[in-house]
Amino acid sequence: MVSVIISYYDRYEIKDLHRLLADMKRYPAGLPFRLLIVVNSSGVVRPSLNSLPTSFDYEVIRRENRGYNIGAWEEGWRYQNDEAYLFMQHECRIVRSGWLKAFDQISQLPDVGLIGESLAQEWDQPWESIEEEIRYYEMHEHEIARKPIRDRVACYKHHLKSWQIDPLNNAGHLQSLVLYAKRKVLEEIDGFPIGNNYGEAIASEIGISKKVEAIGYQITQVHTKPFRYISHPQWTQNSNPTLWNMLVALQARFMNR
C-alpha cells in the first residue's frame, strides 16, 4: 500500500486543503492509497479540520510546528507503516489522472531512490560554481553559530555537515514541494533531516537528495517536464520563471511557517 501524506500548517486558510482533496477525487490516482494529513500546530485555535469532505477516507495527526513541511512528512512516514509514500504540501494541486501511479512506476526502476516534480535546475552544478546572484541572495535566518551569513552555499554546506550529510560535489536536488520514496529508502537514510529555522529548512531540502545520492540511488523528476502531475502555485505548470522569481518564491515558501 502507498500512503499519501499531506502537510498542513494550521495558521493557513483551509481552503487550499479543501481544493487539494477535491482534486484527488476528481483525478483518479491510478492506485489505491491511504491518506494521512499531518498538521503543524501553531498553538492558536484555528478552523476545525472537521469541515473537510466526509466522503474522503483520511486520518489526521497533529504535531508541534517544528521542521516545517519536511518535519511533518518525517513524522508522517514513521507513523504510517506502508511500502511507499507520496509527500505533498497542502497548497499543491492535482492536474491530471494517474498522478500516484506515475510516481510508483518510476520508483520501480532499480537505481531510483527519490522522485519529485521538479529538480532545482539553478542548483544543478558544482557547489563552487553556484552563481553570485544565487549564492549571495540574502534571506533571513541564514546563520552559522548564530551569526548571520550572506553566503548561502557556505550556510547550507555547514548545516549538511553538522547533520553528517555529505554535500557531495554537486548542489542539485529535488524541491520539497512533492516527493515520493519507498519506505526501504527512507529507512536506509534514516529519514529526513529537520531544520529549526529558515536557512536550516532549505539545507534540509537539499539534504534529503544528498542522503539518497550518498547511498547510491538516483534522484529524478517524475516526468521530463516539471509539475506534470502535481503543481504548486509558486511554480505553475508550463511556466519558465526567471531566476529572480524563483528566489522570491523560494523565500515565500518557507516564510511564516
Rank of each mutant, 00 (worst) to 15 (best):
Trp244Cys: 03
His18Phe: 15
Ser97Pro: 01
Arg62Ala: 12
Thr220Tyr: 05
Trp77Ser: 06
Ser97Cys: 12
Leu35Ser: 11
Trp99Ser: 09
Glu188Ile: 08
Thr236Cys: 03
Asp82Lys: 12
Asn50Ala: 13
Glu83Gly: 04
Tyr136Arg: 06
Ala154Trp: 05
Phe192Asp: 01
Tyr180Val: 07
Met24Leu: 11
Ser209His: 00
Arg150Trp: 14
Arg228Glu: 11
Phe56Tyr: 11
Thr54Gly: 09
Arg11Asn: 13
Glu128Ala: 10
Pro148Trp: 09
Ser107Tyr: 06
Gly191Met: 11
Ser176His: 07
Glu122Ala: 02
Ile37Thr: 04
Lys182Trp: 08
His142Leu: 09
Arg78Leu: 05
Asn81Met: 12
Gln221Asp: 00
Arg183Ile: 02
Asn245His: 09
Ile208Val: 15
Ser118Pro: 01
Ile206Ser: 01
Glu13Met: 11
Asp10Val: 09
Gly172Arg: 03
Tyr156Arg: 14
Leu168Pro: 06
Leu52His: 13
Gln89Phe: 02
Glu74Trp: 04
Lys184Leu: 09
Pro241Asp: 07
Tyr58Val: 09
Met139Tyr: 12
Leu243His: 01
Pro110Tyr: 01
Gln175Phe: 07
Val44Met: 08
Ser204Cys: 05
Phe103Met: 05
Cys155Trp: 02
Phe254Pro: 01
Val44Cys: 03
Val212Trp: 14
Tyr12Lys: 14
Asn256Thr: 13
Ile165Met: 06
Ile14Ala: 02
Glu59Lys: 14
Glu128Gln: 14
Val222His: 01
Ala145Lys: 13
Pro32Asp: 10
Asp111Ala: 13
Leu100Val: 03
Glu64Thr: 15
Pro28Tyr: 05
Arg34Gly: 12
Tyr85Phe: 12
Ala201Ser: 13
Gly71Tyr: 08
Tyr198Arg: 15
Gln175Pro: 01
Leu174Met: 12
Glu13Pro: 12
Glu200Trp: 02
Glu128Met: 10
Ile219Arg: 01
Gly191Thr: 08
Trp99Arg: 06
Lys161Leu: 14
Gly43Lys: 07
Cys155Asn: 09
Gln125Glu: 10
Glu132Leu: 04
Pro233Leu: 10
Ser231Gln: 12
Met255Gly: 09
Lys25Phe: 06
Pro110Ile: 09
Ile134Leu: 15
Arg96Gly: 03
Ser51Gly: 10
